[in-house]
Computed example of a mutant assay.
Amino acid sequence: MGTPAISGDPKPQITFQTKGITKVYDTGDVQVHALRGVDLALYEGEFAVLLGPSGSGKSTLLNILGGLDQPTDGQVWFRNQELTAASERELTRYRRDNVGFVFQFYNLVPSLTARENVELVTEIARSPMDAREALDIVGLKERVDHFPAQLSGGEQQRVAIARAIAKRPDVLLCDEPTGALDSQTGVIVLEAIERVNAELGTTTAVITHNASIADMAHRVVSFADGAIARVVVNDARKPARDITW
């Protein structure tokens, strides 16, 4: 697969390891093979982009890595914990303590301010950062007391990122985080994700069908028809501010 050079470490530690992951959805009349024998490693502190068209298996894999779904066959490890052997209670604890999720749609509570939306997570986390600190990291220090209706789409997505990182997760899993945004706003959101990866060292995986975003990554994992088509290591990464589409 190729091991990225991250922070000068020639042998980065593995965060996720999958072996032979398959996922089959049985709709009754037909079986849909969402994943077909995926072997993948993601590394500590890595910024990985999972690239491919809709239906190629990216979101299914991300949901399995995040403990939201289980594969039909194969094994998944988070560090030394085998997620595919974990109980529901163990998976709940894993999601709560280790994983931050960012989705295409922001899922903010309309009646709560930006700060209060972030505090929904900090109230249940083990050692959370202050909600204001999380919002500052994503560039919203001046918007903490604004409600979602008073924020732009890009600002709402950055609140969602702040909410995801406020519990200090080991990994940040982003599913089409710029999919509902225009290019200019999307770049601002990507800068926030980029900063989280660089400053907090959070292992970051971003799903997208937008090939331009791949230039930001340490590694680009391209999917097609439920399988990994190729893996590319970027020798030189492009900062988010230079991304255009």
Rank of each mutant, 00 (worst) to 15 (best):
L51I: 13
N117K: 07
A5D: 13
V232W: 05
L173A: 14
V138R: 04
S183F: 08
E44M: 06
T22E: 13
G52M: 11
S56E: 00
T27Q: 08
L108R: 12
I21F: 10
D175Q: 09
V189Q: 05
A198C: 00
E176A: 03
H218F: 11
S183Q: 15
T202K: 00
G153I: 08
V32Y: 06
K11N: 14
A48N: 07
Q17E: 15
V171W: 03
I165K: 10
F16D: 00
G186T: 08
I213Y: 01
A162L: 02
R36G: 04
V233N: 15
L65C: 05
K11I: 08
D145T: 04
I188M: 07
L35K: 04
K238F: 01
A149Q: 13
W77F: 12
L40V: 10
D145H: 14
I64H: 04
A227K: 14
A217Y: 04
A131I: 10
R195Y: 02
R237P: 11
S56P: 05
E46S: 08
A166L: 03
A164Q: 05
A85Y: 00
Q17L: 08
D39A: 13
V38R: 07
F101M: 13
D136S: 12
F223M: 15
W77S: 00
L120W: 06
P4H: 07
S54Q: 10
L42F: 12
R168Y: 05
I165V: 14
V38C: 11
F101K: 04
E90A: 15
A240T: 10
R168D: 09
L140S: 03
L172F: 11
Q157Y: 07
T244V: 14
A205L: 13
M216Q: 07
A205Y: 04
R95S: 05
L42P: 00
